[in-house]
Structures are given as C-alpha cells and as structure tokens.
Amino acid sequence: MALVGLGLIGGSVGLAARERLGAEVVGFDPDPEVRAKALERGVVDAVVDEPGDFPREVDVAVIAAPIAGLARHVAEACAFFAGAVVTDVGSTKAALVAGHPRDPYIGGHPLAGAEVAGVEHARGDLFAGATWYLTPRPDSEGILLERLHRFVTGLGAVPTIIDASDHDRLMAAFSHVPHVVANAMVAQATRALGGEAIPVVGPSFRDATRVAGANPPLWAGIYDANRDAVLAGLDATIALLTEARDLLARDDTHATEAWQAEAQRQRRALLDVGMTGGELTEIRRVVPNRPGVVADLALTLSRAGINIHDMTLSPQPDFRSGEVALWVAEEHHARARSLVDEVLSQS
C-alpha cells in the first residue's frame, strides 16, 4: 500500500496494515524528519522523497494529509496508481466525492483519534472496533469497494457504508456543531466570570467543553470544508436554544421537568443506536456485471440502517455476471434480502 501523510492517523494506518495484514507499506510525508521517525518506528517499510517516487502498482493508496490538501493529493493518486483503490481519512466527504467522478476514489473516515498528534504517537490498535465510514459513489466499482471494505476490516475497524452527503450532515450534527458550541460555552463562561479569579469548575462544564479549542489548524479546515452543513446545524441549534429559553421563561416546573426527561430519553436512544447486533447471516445473489451495482446495493442497505459487515465478489465464467455475498446482522436479514432483491429487479 501507498501512504501519503505520516501523522497520528496515517502512521496508525501504516502500523495496523503491517501488523495485522502483513502489508508492505511505502510512505511519504513532506517533512523529512517525520519520514525518518516513521521508518524508525516501523510505521512503514520504506519511504519516498517525492510522491512521484512511489511504485505505481499498489493495492490501496491511503491519503492521510491535512484536509486543505486532500483534493490535490487524491487527484494525483488517482492519476498515478495503476489499479489501486484510492481513499482518504478526512472528516468531510461530499466535496471530495463530487470532485472525483469516474475515478478509483472511495472516501473514507475512521472515527478514531487521540488528544496527541504526530507519528511518534501512532498505534497499531487505534482503529480496533472503531467505525470507519466508506462513501462510495453510486457508480463506484464493486471490486474496489470490496477491496477497501476488506482492508478496513483487516485494520480492526468496522466499515460502514454511507452516502457522502449524509455523512457530512451527520458529522456536522454529532461532531462539528458540538465543537462550535463547546467553544461558545467557554467564551460565555469567560465573559460571565469577568475579572474574577477562575473558580474550581464542576464535571458538567469540563465534560461539555472537553473539545473546545481542539487543534486549531485541523478544525479550521473542517469548518471550512463542511461549512453549509455546520451552518444549518447551528441554525437548528439556535432555534432549539430559543425554544428552551421561552420554556424556562414561562416558570412552568412541570413543563421544564418533562423537557429534561425527554432530553434524557433521547440521549439514551442516540447512544443505543447502532447498525450492528446479533449473529451475522449471509445473503448471496448473482448480479449483473455493470459499474455501480454493488455500490448501489451497499448504499441502499445503508439508507435502511443496515450495515454490511463483510462482502465477497466472485465473477461467473462468462464475466457477464458475478456472485455477491453480503453478511449482515441476523435481525436485519429479512429486510436486507428484500431490499437486495428490489434493487436487482430494477437492474
């Protein structure tokens, strides 16, 4: 595999690929000191001084560069590597996916990280059990999607296929807007304090503002890349805060208690949400050999809240069709089978 960017996430991808998959990893980072550290730590088998020095034939190319340079690096990788699936680890996807039609690019985003940075903190177990979003286009090649799905599984993560726009909307709701709100909470508390000495703060404030001010260069790039979804999320948050203010101003204890209880119920439901659960069961079907059929199946199941835990593709002797096997949670089997048959009936 080729690895562009040797920081915490890229370095951890390299370590996991070498340790868990026995992969041969060739890496690049613009900082020669980082390249040397990556070699010293065993993150990569070899490094190149320039991206053009990579071997052209690799199975997977992972772009772990800063978000501002992702589009350029992805475009260069798509043009350079022969037969590879090209992916990235950035936290916004829609613009990247839209910018690379018909390319061997499939977006990726592991929900993993740490409060430290740099290749010196890379860990081979960083992705163990972590959700790793994959955002294929409807016409993405099935063989490349299968390869990337298997690669992510091999790193110890749980690949979860999702539409790129849905990904960015959900990331705004569950990650990006909470960061903005945490920053605002810190600013509000600071202004409320005035010139007084800072008191000992309670756990509620510490927990709610843990992410405030996190990695300014990284988060400035994320806000820019997902601006529309973040702004929509902030508008919705402001509206909810206005509703909460009006409720509290009414001096209605019963209504306030009900509001608090509903928040408790909704939080519990959100934390319990998952597209996994139970034993896995197999769905096996013959599919036409046309671009996008496997991606179409995966995205259809994703929209129904059904995750594909594993997949295999086997071509038929005439290469006009192939057999796809999908493994889903047993509780989702009947619904998944119905959706698969519905998609294939329209092919």
Rank of each mutant, 00 (worst) to 15 (best):
G278D: 01
D49L: 08
L3S: 04
I63D: 06
T253N: 03
N307Q: 15
A82F: 09
V119A: 05
V116Y: 08
G154Q: 01
S347E: 15
G107T: 05
S140C: 03
R20Y: 12
L145D: 02
K93H: 00
V89Y: 09
V287K: 00
R265P: 07
N183P: 05
G90D: 06
I63M: 07
R320L: 10
V48A: 03
R41W: 08
V97A: 00
D207Q: 04
R18K: 10
R72C: 00
N226S: 00
V58L: 01
W219C: 08
E57S: 09
H73D: 15
A225L: 03
P32H: 06
A16I: 04
N307R: 15
A232W: 09
E115H: 00
A172V: 12
E141R: 08
Y105C: 06
A164Q: 00
G292A: 04
L193S: 02
E330D: 11
A229H: 12
L248D: 11
A208R: 06
A16Y: 05
R169C: 03
E243M: 08
P315W: 15
V177R: 04
L313T: 04
L126Q: 04
A65L: 07
A98T: 02
V324Y: 02
A122K: 06
Q188A: 14
V328F: 12
R191I: 14
A61T: 07
T242C: 10
A2P: 02
E57I: 04
L155M: 01
G7I: 12
G42V: 10
S140L: 05
G22T: 08
P101H: 02
S314D: 13
I63K: 05
R72W: 07
V60E: 02
R150Q: 15
I143Q: 15
G99W: 15
S165C: 07
P203D: 11
P203Q: 03
A112R: 00
G83K: 14
V25E: 00
D235S: 02
G5P: 09
V287S: 02
A304T: 13
L299M: 10
T256R: 15
P216K: 08
A16C: 01
P110S: 01
R123T: 02
A71P: 04
V230W: 13
L148N: 03
A295L: 05
D53H: 03
E57N: 09
H73Q: 13
V48N: 03
A84H: 07
A128S: 14
I143R: 15
M171W: 13
I67N: 08
S12M: 14
W132M: 01
S321Q: 09
E19K: 14
Y223P: 03
N226T: 01
A225N: 00
D252R: 05
A65K: 11
P30A: 00
L39E: 10
D49I: 00
L248R: 15
G99R: 11
E243F: 09
L270Q: 11
